[in-house]
Measured scan of single mutants.
Amino acid sequence: DAEFRHDSGYEVHHQKLVFFAEDVGSNKGAIIGLMVGGVVIA
């Protein structure tokens, strides 16, 4: 149960990062950079 909640939280966090990247611009380099930055921060 705890693992499921953790996975759901991660999924929401990931979707927010992707949405933010798409909102800023559909530049693949920027999106990839944001994703990598999110992984480093996390």
Rank of each mutant, 00 (worst) to 15 (best):
V12E: 08
Q15E: 10
A42F: 08
S8C: 03
Y10S: 11
V12T: 10
F4V: 08
G9S: 04
H6C: 11
I31V: 06
H14Q: 07
F20P: 04
L34P: 01
G38N: 09
I31A: 04
G29E: 07
M35Q: 02
V36S: 04
V24W: 03
D7R: 12
L34C: 11
V12M: 14
R5N: 09
F20G: 13
S8H: 14
E22S: 15
A21K: 06
A42I: 09
E11P: 15
K28L: 02
D1R: 13
F20R: 12
L17P: 11
V18R: 11
G33L: 01
V24G: 15
G33H: 10
R5V: 11
A2V: 06
K16T: 14
A30D: 01
D7H: 14
K16Q: 13
V39A: 01
F20W: 02
H14F: 05
A42C: 15
S8R: 11
V24C: 06
Y10P: 12
D7T: 15
M35G: 00
L17N: 12
F20C: 05
N27Q: 03
F20M: 09
E22Y: 04
G9T: 10
I41T: 01
V39H: 04
K16A: 06
F19V: 13
N27G: 00
D23R: 14
R5L: 07
H6P: 13
R5H: 06
V40P: 01
G25N: 11
F20V: 13
L34G: 00
N27S: 04
E3M: 05
Q15R: 05
E11Y: 09
S26C: 04
N27M: 07
V36R: 03
A21Y: 11
E11I: 09
A2F: 09
G37V: 03
R5G: 10
H14K: 07
D7I: 08
V36K: 04
E22Q: 15
A30M: 07
S26F: 07
V39P: 00
K16G: 06
D7Q: 14
N27L: 08
K16Y: 05
I41P: 01
V12N: 12
S26T: 10
F4S: 05
K28H: 10
V40C: 08
H6N: 11
A42D: 03
K28Q: 06
G37P: 01
I31Y: 03
K28I: 08
S8T: 07
G38C: 13
A21Q: 09
H14R: 10
V40G: 02
K28E: 06
A30R: 00
S8I: 11
Q15C: 15
Y10L: 06
V24N: 10
N27F: 15
A2M: 10
G37F: 01
H6M: 10
I31E: 00
V39G: 01
A42W: 02
Q15Y: 03
S26E: 09
D23W: 04
S8E: 08
K16W: 01
V18C: 09
A21R: 06
N27V: 13
A42K: 00
R5F: 04
G38E: 00
A2S: 07
F19A: 05
V12C: 14
G25A: 09
G33A: 01
A42N: 15
H6T: 09
F4T: 11
D1C: 07
A30K: 02
D23P: 15
I41D: 04
V36H: 03
Q15G: 10
G25W: 03
V12I: 09
D1H: 10
A2P: 07
H13T: 10
F20T: 12
M35D: 01
F19C: 04
D7N: 12
V39W: 04
I32Q: 01
H6A: 10
A30P: 04
D1F: 10
G25C: 11
R5M: 12
E22M: 05
L17G: 13
E3F: 14
V18P: 14
D7V: 09
D23F: 01
A30F: 07
E22V: 08
E3Y: 06
G29K: 00
V40A: 03
G25H: 07
V18A: 09
K28F: 01
L34M: 09
S8P: 06
I31D: 02
A2L: 05
A30W: 02
V39C: 04
S8N: 08
M35V: 08
F19I: 15
D7W: 12
L17S: 10
D1P: 13
F4D: 08
D7A: 12
S26G: 08
N27I: 12
Y10M: 08
D7F: 11
V18H: 09
A30H: 04
G9R: 13
G9M: 07
Y10R: 10
V12H: 14
H13C: 14
G37K: 01
I41W: 05
D1S: 09
H13G: 08
L34Q: 06
V40L: 02
I31Q: 09
D23I: 00
V36E: 00
V39L: 05
G29A: 05
F4I: 11
H6Q: 13
Q15D: 07
F20D: 05
H14E: 07
G9K: 13
L34I: 14
V40F: 04
H6V: 05
G25R: 11
V24Q: 15
G38F: 02
A2Q: 12
E11H: 15
H13V: 15
V12R: 12
E11G: 13
D1Q: 13
H6E: 06
S26R: 03
K28R: 07
L17F: 14
D1L: 04
Q15F: 06
I32L: 01
K16L: 02
N27R: 00
A21C: 14
G29V: 15
M35E: 00
I41Y: 08
V40E: 01
L34V: 15
V18T: 13
M35A: 01
G25F: 14
I32W: 02
H6I: 06
E22W: 00
G37Q: 01
A2D: 07
V24E: 10
M35H: 01
S8K: 12
K16F: 01
V39N: 05
V36F: 14
V36N: 05
G37A: 04
E11S: 09
V40T: 02
D7C: 12
G37Y: 01
G38V: 02
V40D: 03
D23A: 07
I31P: 01
F4L: 07
L17T: 15
H6Y: 11
I41Q: 04
V18M: 08
V36I: 14
S26I: 10
R5A: 06
A42T: 15
G33F: 04
A2H: 10
G38Y: 02
V40K: 01
G33V: 01
H13E: 06
G37M: 01
V24T: 08
G38S: 05
G9V: 07
V24S: 12
M35K: 00
A42P: 04
N27P: 03
I32V: 04
M35N: 07
I32N: 00
G29I: 14
E3H: 11
F4G: 13
D23N: 15
G38A: 02
I32F: 05
I32T: 00
K16H: 11
D7P: 14
V18E: 04
I41G: 02
V24H: 09
F19M: 13
I41V: 02
A21P: 08
E11L: 04
V24Y: 03
E22C: 14
M35Y: 00
A30I: 15
V18G: 05
Q15M: 11
R5T: 10
I32E: 01
V40M: 03
F19K: 12
G37I: 02
F4Y: 07
A2T: 12
M35R: 00
G25I: 10
V36W: 02
E3K: 14
L17D: 05
H14G: 13
H13P: 14
F20Q: 08
A42G: 03
H14W: 01
K28P: 03
E22P: 15
Y10G: 11
G33N: 13
V39F: 05
G29F: 07
L17W: 10
H14V: 14
G33E: 05
A42M: 12
H13I: 15
G38P: 05
I31M: 06
H6K: 11
V40I: 05
H13F: 14
K28C: 09
M35C: 02
A2E: 08
K28A: 11
I32H: 03
I41F: 12
K28M: 03
G9I: 12
A30L: 12
G9H: 12
D1I: 03
G25Y: 13
A21V: 12
A21W: 07
S26V: 13
V40N: 03
G38Q: 05
E22F: 03
E11D: 13
H14T: 07
D23K: 11
E11N: 14
N27Y: 12
